[in-house]
């Protein structure tokens, strides 16, 4: 895996959205024609529990400024997955701290299929943050 660095001129936000809840939630926001920042890239996932800690760190390494995991929360169709995910995210936070990354760059949320308002809140909040922080800077030693 080759880090590609900050080739874009935007502060990019990656959104991992579950196919049963958050992804349709993002579509619902679209149906309402509610505008939000365009530096957001939504990837449809079955369950975010799939991603290892390294995936998140690699994303930051590749220049992604912020990541929002939009899960189904307690309504997750895979029993136990949300709990595991929450634990993993804690471990990612620990690693981020170690690398000098602001842990607010990664957020775990639950978005439902019609949670337009919550979706916009999350996106705007993350956008404010990445605008303020700029691209991720890794501490010299990992």
């Amino acid at each position: 895996m080759t880090p590609t660095g900050n080739s874009g001129n935007q502060d990019k936000i990656l959104i991992l959205a579950t196919e049963t809840c958050a992804y349709p939630g993002a579509d619902s926001t679209g149906q309402a024609h509610s505008s939000y920042p365009a530096n957001t890239y939504i990837l449809r996932v079955r369950a975010p529990v799939l991603f290892p800690e390294s995936f998140y760190l690699d994303c930051f390494q590749k220049g992604i400024s912020g990541i929002i995991i939009m899960s189904c929360g307690e309504e997750c169709p895979y029993e136990g997955a949300y709990k595991d995910l929450a634990k993993r995210v804690d471990r990612v936070y620990a690693a981020m701290k170690e690398k000098g990354l602001d842990i607010n760059r990664l957020r775990l949320t639950a978005i439902c299929t019609v949670c337009n308002r919550a979706f916009l809140n999350e996106v705007n909040r993350m956008n404010d943050l990445v605008q303020e922080l700029g691209p991720p800077q890794f501490a010299a030693t990992a």
């Binding site: 895996m1 590609t4 080739s7 874009g8 990019k12 990656l14 890239y41 990837l43 996932v45 079955r46 799939l50 991603f51 290892p52 995936f55 690699d58 994303c59 590749k62 220049g63 992604i64």
Partner: peptide, 18 residues
């Protein structure tokens, strides 16, 4: 996971980052 591989996701992130 067939159809949703980590490799595929990494490729997507690369495309977005690029």
């Amino acid at each position: 996971v067939n159809g949703w591989t980590l490799k595929q996701y990494e490729a997507m992130v690369d495309a977005i980052a690029a």
